Amino acid sequence: MPMIDLKTHDRFGFSALPDRPDFSWPEGKRLAVCICNNIEVFSYLDGLGSDSAQVGAPQTTRNYAWREYGNRVGQWYLFDLLDELGFPASHNFNSLLLDRHARIAERILERGDEFVGHGRTNAERQDTLPEAEERALIEESLAAIRAFAGTAPKGWLGPYLAQTPVTLDLLKEAGLDYVLDWPADDQPFWMRTRSGPLLSVPYSIEVNDSPAMVFRQQGAADFERMMVDQFDEMLFQSGKYPLVYTIVLHPFVIGQPYRLRALRRALAHVAAFRDKLWITTPGQVAAHYASLHPPA
Rank of each mutant, 00 (worst) to 15 (best):
E134Q: 13
L129Q: 04
W182K: 04
A184T: 06
L81F: 07
S95N: 08
L82T: 02
N94F: 03
A149N: 03
A136F: 10
A53N: 10
K172G: 09
F115Q: 00
Q59E: 12
R120N: 05
V55A: 14
A65E: 15
E139L: 14
P130Q: 10
P165I: 12
E110W: 04
F87P: 01
D46Q: 15
D83V: 11
L170M: 08
E140H: 11
Q59S: 13
N63C: 10
R146L: 10
Y44A: 12
R107C: 04
A143F: 01
G155H: 00
A174P: 00
F87L: 06
D99E: 15
L168F: 12
K172F: 04
Q59D: 03
T167Y: 02
P159E: 02
E110C: 09
E133S: 14
I145F: 00
I138Y: 05
H118V: 01
G112P: 05
E134W: 01
L78F: 09
I145P: 01
Y178R: 02
W156A: 02
S52L: 09
A144R: 12
T60C: 08
T164D: 07
F148G: 05
Q163A: 12
G112M: 10
A89D: 00
L161T: 10
S43M: 11
D51W: 04
G175Y: 05
A65N: 13
D181E: 05
G117Q: 03
P130N: 10
G70H: 04
A174V: 08
A147Q: 14
A102G: 07
L98E: 01
F148V: 09
V41Y: 05
R125C: 08
A102C: 06
N71F: 04
F79G: 02
A65G: 05
F93S: 00
L109Y: 06
D99W: 03
L85K: 09
E110N: 07
A123T: 10
D185P: 00
Y77N: 11
V73G: 04
G119R: 01
Q54I: 13
N71E: 02
V55Q: 09
Q59L: 13
L96D: 03
R135C: 07
V41A: 02
L170R: 07
H101F: 14
H118M: 07
L168T: 05
